[in-house]
Design a protein around this nucleic acid. Structure first.
Length: 476
DNA sequence: GTATTTG
DNA sequence: CAAATACAACGCGAG
DNA sequence: CTCGCG
């Protein structure tokens, strides 16, 4: 009943206000009727789970009946049982990290009486006792359900099985991290150990985990856009190629987009994202317009310094351009390209400007910046005429052109990412190589996505002053 | 990474 | 049966 | 002009 949510919230707030009760801590939780759709949502976001209740059941503190049901989003992992402590009945769970076992938590519940009896007996009869617990060499593998691996410790672990589903040698930290990530079952993954970024030590397994975790933040930008992929099936140092047509062998969850003549591809689901990633899809590029649409959805400035050492030029140019955009009362978003430079995104209302007009606008701004600081910036396309200046690429913004999608990894040796920034972060200490596959997930989970309001801003963006500047009027 | 063509 | 090839498109400079 | 490169 998602439709009624806003109404219900207002009604509830109204009642609380009438009774002079504090409303600041009221939180109305979304409710859904379609359990399958909701579970998909929870799975995609790695949510904790859901509460199900009878339609007429109301909440009462301490109530003990079965009208309310908590269904948790368990993930199943495989661990080695390394020791047993009789005093509290805990089994210690461990996995291999390189060649030594590391402890990842303790597990007690979930075994039936018979299995528990068998395993404790095994430990107490064959294990070595140190006064506290019995230890066995790595041999017993258990399947454990858990909610998370938080600071190296399993959350709410419970046995879900014990015995021969996996070999002790397979219980590695790498496998655990993958199980913890909950990769979608619809994709057939392969070659987890292939080094995709050899210099940074990032293998395919780590990349897939990155893509799975970043998917909720990345997919909104890919959805409804034609996809151009750069694929590096042998890693970023080996041969690469572009792909924009739907391959014949793609599974049915990869959505085609049919034009007159050609079949392009879309990426609109967790499964699609990870299927592309499993096929060595490293860079996800998208055009400025939605599939099948004539008009751009955003304006982007591409600020491309001659090299990493001159990243300061990108910071300088971005700061200047931001000042102009503020003057025009335009909200803008900034991201690291993941390569050498910065990109400024300005979401514009659907079908509000033609490509001719956005080109005019970007040229006007680019020219202004170039005229103001000719020693630092240039709109000169020819590399040999740039003389170490930062190139403000306004040609790159047009139909049939594409740009790297937010949160896409890049084909760079460090495994850098095209990462959205807050404007406050655009200052001299900013360095692109500090934002990689290894740390961007933690960053976005801690600080939120700086582009979270992108769609909201698009709907509210008023382009009146832009058209005044251009001396034109909107196309529609 | 996969399917197809070529040697 | 192993090896080679395609998987974008566009502008530019070299030949 | 085509070819190869980025």
């Amino acid at each position: 009943m998602k439709e009624n949510h806003e109404q219900r919230r207002k009604k509830l707030l109204h009642v609380f206000q009438k009774l002079s009760l504090p409303t600041s801590r009221i939180q109305l939780v979304d409710s859904y009727r379609d359990a399958e759709a909701l579970w998909k949502l929870i799975f995609d976001h790695k949510g904790e789970g859901l509460i199900a209740k009878r339609q007429k059941s109301v909440y009462a503190p301490g109530k003990n009946h079965h009208d309310w049901l908590k269904i948790k989003n368990w993930r199943i992992i495989h661990v080695i049982l390394s020791s047993y402590q009789p005093s509290n009945d805990y089994f210690n769970a461990a996995v291999w990290r390189n060649d030594s076992l590391i402890s990842i938590g303790k597990c007690k519940h979930g075994l039936d009486a018979e299995a528990r009896q068998t395993v404790t007996k095994l430990f107490m009869e064959s294990g070595s006792f140190n006064g506290q617990s019995y230890t066995l060499p790595p041999a017993i593998v258990a399947a454990v359900q858990t909610l998370d691996l938080y600071q190296g410790e399993l959350r709410e672990p419970a046995f879900s099985g014990i015995g021969a589903e996996a070999e002790p040698a397979d219980c590695t930290l790498k496998t655990l991290q993958r199980e913890q990530a909950m990769l979608p079952a619809a994709v057939d993954f392969s070659k987890f150990d292939k080094l995709y970024w050899p210099k940074a030590g990032i293998d395919k397994s780590a990349y897939l985990v990155y893509m799975r975790e970043i998917a909720p933040y990345m997919l909104p930008f890919l959805r409804e856009h034609l996809l151009t992929l750069i694929r590096c099936p042998e890693g970023v140092e080996e041969e690469y190629f572009f792909q924009k047509h739907l391959p014949e062998y793609a599974p049915s969850f990869i959505k085609p987009f049919q034009s007159e003549e050609e079949t392009f591809m879309l990426c609109d689901s967790l499964e699609s994202l990870l299927w592309f990633a499993n096929h060595g899809g490293i860079e996800f590029h998208i055009p400025f317009e939605k599939a099948g649409c004539m008009y751009p959805n955003e304006i982007v400035f591409d600020l491309d310094p001659p090299n990493r050492e001159r990243f300061d030029l990108a910071i300088k140019a971005a700061t200047i351009i931001k000042k102009y955009l503020d003057k025009l009362k335009l909200s803008s978003f900034v991201k690291l390209s993941g390569n050498k430079g910065l990109q400024i995104h300005i979401p514009i209302m659907e079908k509000s400007m033609s490509y001719e007009q956005t080109a005019l606008f970007t040229q006007a701004i680019a020219q202004t910046v170039e005229n103001q600081h000719p020693a630092f910036f240039t709109t000169e396309r020819m590399k040999k005429n740039r003389h170490g200046r930062l190139y403000i690429d306004y040609v790159q913004h047009g139909k049939n052109k594409t740009i790297i999608a937010p949160y896409s990894a890049r084909k760079t040796e460090e495994g850098t990412v095209a990462v959205p920034l807050r404007w406050e972060e655009v200052e001299p200490s900013l360095e692109p190589q500090n934002f990689t596959i290894k740390n961007v997930v933690a960053r976005v989970q801690n600080m939120g996505c700086p582009f979270a309001n992108y769609e909201l801003v698009r709907q509210q963006q008023n382009l009146k002053e832009v058209f005044t500047l251009l001396g034109e009027s909107p196309p529609l």
